[in-house]
Amino acid sequence: MTKQMTRQSGFGRWWRRRGRFVFSHGVLAFLALTMLAPFLWMVLASFKPLVEVEELNPFPSKWQPVNYLQVFREIPFARYYFNSLFVAGWVTFLQCLTSAMAAYAFARLRWKWRDHVFRLYLATLMIPGVVTMIPNYTLMVKLHLLDSYQGLIIPAAFTAFGTFLLRQFMLTIPRSLDEAAQMDGATHWQVFWDVILPLTRPGLITLAIFTFMGNYRSFFWPLVMIKSQHLRTLPVGMLYFDSIYGRQTNLLMAATVMNIVPLIILFVVTQKFLIKGIQLGAVKG
């Protein structure tokens, strides 16, 4: 493309570049605006007095930053926040660790039933969550893990998806690297930690982000699992502002804004790795 363009006249080149630039930004900015508008409405609504929430005028007549304080007064918001981060943190840690290890076994080791077991893993990606929900719930009841952190963390900590994602990524790492390390007498444990994992870092970050966000937002499982006030996570805890006794949409919006800020920061910081870390598979060469 660049070669062709240098041959064109100065004006044409300027116009083509300029035109493309304007077009791209135009389309993107329009789309971004449609994405952003409801959020602006949400942020503005979080500063409104309750009665104004549904008025068409998006701006509050009187700004009420006190809504944000009120959230903390009405529900143990900090506790919910802590629970959400805590549960999502543990799940992410366990998931990354066990998935990376399993992925190593699938991507780097040769054993008898490897491809069959991997196909089984792949097949379970298709299982709808509702199929396993009731048995898992029953299992949690039998294990006396209902209404506990463990009941939120453990069932979510082992997934086929993480193993799949990391296995695909590890396949792209040149074999010569770990073979060289093994030549030098390294054990599999050492190869895994010192050669493969550092190179899998983008994949791990991607998995960590997906897992963290997925669990931080998770609604249904905590809803059925958790009974006690002090164990509730944010998505379930915020339902308080939407109950039939006092629907407080402005506070709900304030809570949501506070809820998503850490996610946005996380995303902005990691979005580069996020894209590098996904290797779904290649076309047969």
Partner: peptide
């Protein structure tokens, strides 16, 4: 490698067995 693979796979596979295959 067979033994090593088992060791690497086991933590994930156990969880997979208990929380996915079993419930299915």
């Amino acid at each position: 490698e067979g033994a090593a693979a088992m060791a690497f796979l086991l933590p994930n596979f156990l969880g997979f067995l208990v929380f996915t295959i079993g419930p299915v």
